[in-house]
Amino acid sequence: MALFGTLINALLIVVGAIIGRLLKGIPENMKQTVMNAIGIAVALLGIQMGLESDNFVLVIICIVFGGVIGEWIDLDKWLNRFAQFLETKMGSPKQGAGIAQGFVAGTLIFVIGAMGVLGALNGGLQNDHELLISKGIIDGFTSIVLAATLGIGVLFSAIPVAIYQGVIALFATQITKIIPEAALELFLQEMTATGGIMIIAIGLNLLGVTKVRVANLLPSLVVVGIAVTIIYNF
């Protein structure tokens, strides 16, 4: 079953988020300390990912063009509207921004990086789910901590994870035929580095240092794909 690893990964995120919400009653000062610790750890993760690139000028170009596109579309606004809709359905209409923050933070942390792509390819091509199950365990523990501090929005990040990894797993054979291995490796490297910048922004937001609209930077990942295609073919 090609989707087994993906489904386990998404399920562990959901379970972790539910456990995290059960811990929401921790004292405020403890929650703030944990939030600061998460912010520092997330920023450090972003720095580590950002250093993956061998062409940082390309990363800068992609993040700038992606940011312009994101601001033009204003993904952050639409995401917050969706979050507020969810909160209304859940009976807490004033907490939409909280859902959005947890959703964006969780999605970026769980989706960006080579582990999800390679794991999904392994699942689709060889029915080998070990890598995705390992990722799921890591994501599950991470979602516990994120949900305890950022709220239930983290749970909904399981949806893009399932869609993203599921599509790759189902079309793994076609992907490997269409995209040369060297181009795929270059894309994963530059996507990881570009995503790392967004994750740094999430860390700084959690620390209260900045108020970056990270959702508006998401088109940068599409720009990376276009840029890598141009570089590889020309």
Results as ranks from 00 to 15, higher is better:
Leu58Phe: 08
Leu150Thr: 14
Arg213Val: 10
Lys177Pro: 10
Phe156Gln: 06
Arg81Gln: 14
Leu12Lys: 05
Gly124Arg: 00
Ile159Trp: 01
Phe187Lys: 04
Phe4Asn: 09
Thr194Trp: 03
Leu51Gln: 04
Ala114Met: 03
Thr229Arg: 03
Ala114His: 03
Glu87Arg: 02
Ala158Tyr: 04
Trp72Tyr: 15
Ile99Trp: 03
Ile133Pro: 07
Val161Ala: 04
Val117Phe: 03
Asn9Ser: 07
Val104Met: 08
Val42His: 00
Lys211Met: 14
Gly67Ala: 07
Gly96Pro: 00
Thr142Asn: 04
Tyr164Gly: 12
Ile230Asp: 14
Leu22Ser: 12
Thr142Ala: 09
Leu125Phe: 06
Phe187Ser: 13
Thr176Asp: 08
Val222Ala: 01
Val111Tyr: 10
Leu58Met: 12
Leu23Lys: 07
Asp128Leu: 08
Leu184Val: 11
Ile199Val: 10
Ile63His: 01
Ala2Gly: 09
Pro180Arg: 08
Leu118Ala: 09
Gln101Gly: 10
Leu51Gly: 08
Asn36Ser: 13
Phe65Ile: 15
Trp78Lys: 14
Val104Asn: 02
Thr142Leu: 13
Ile40Glu: 09
Leu44Cys: 13
Gln48Cys: 12
Ile19Arg: 02
Glu28Ile: 06
Ala182Leu: 13
Leu108Gln: 00
Leu51Pro: 11
Gln48Asn: 12
Ala114Leu: 07
Ala158Trp: 04
Val145Ile: 14
Asn29Gly: 05
Lys31His: 09
Met90Asn: 10
Thr142Tyr: 04
Val68Asp: 14
Gly66Glu: 09
Val68Arg: 11
Asn9Ile: 06
Phe234Asp: 15
Gln95His: 05
Ile69Met: 04
Gln174Thr: 14
Gly153Ala: 05
Thr142Ile: 15
Tyr232Asn: 13
Thr176Trp: 09
Lys24Pro: 07
Phe4Glu: 12
Leu188Val: 10
Asn233Ala: 15
Ser143Met: 10
Ala183Ile: 10
Lys135His: 07
Ile231Cys: 07
Arg81Ala: 13
Leu207Pro: 11
Ile200Ala: 06
Phe234Tyr: 14
Met198Arg: 03
Leu155Phe: 01
Leu125Ser: 10
Ala172His: 00
Cys62His: 06
Val104Pro: 01
Leu12Phe: 05
Phe110Lys: 07
Val224Glu: 03
Asp74Tyr: 06
Ile179Thr: 13
Thr149Lys: 03
Ile137Pro: 09
Val222His: 01
Phe82Cys: 09
Gly16Asp: 05
Val212His: 11
Met198Thr: 02
Val214Met: 02
Gly124Leu: 05
Leu7Asn: 06
Val111Glu: 12
Asp74Gln: 05
Val167Asn: 15
Phe82Glu: 14
Asp128Pro: 06
Phe141Gly: 12
Ile202Glu: 05
Gly66Leu: 00
Leu118Lys: 13
Ile226Met: 15
Gly91Asn: 10
Gly39Ile: 00
Gly208Arg: 06
Gln126Val: 10
Ser134Pro: 07
Val15Arg: 07
Leu44Pro: 11
Pro93Gly: 02
Met115His: 08
Lys24Leu: 01
Leu204Lys: 05
Asn55Ser: 12
Leu204Ala: 15
Gln174Val: 14
Ser157Lys: 00
Asn205Glu: 05
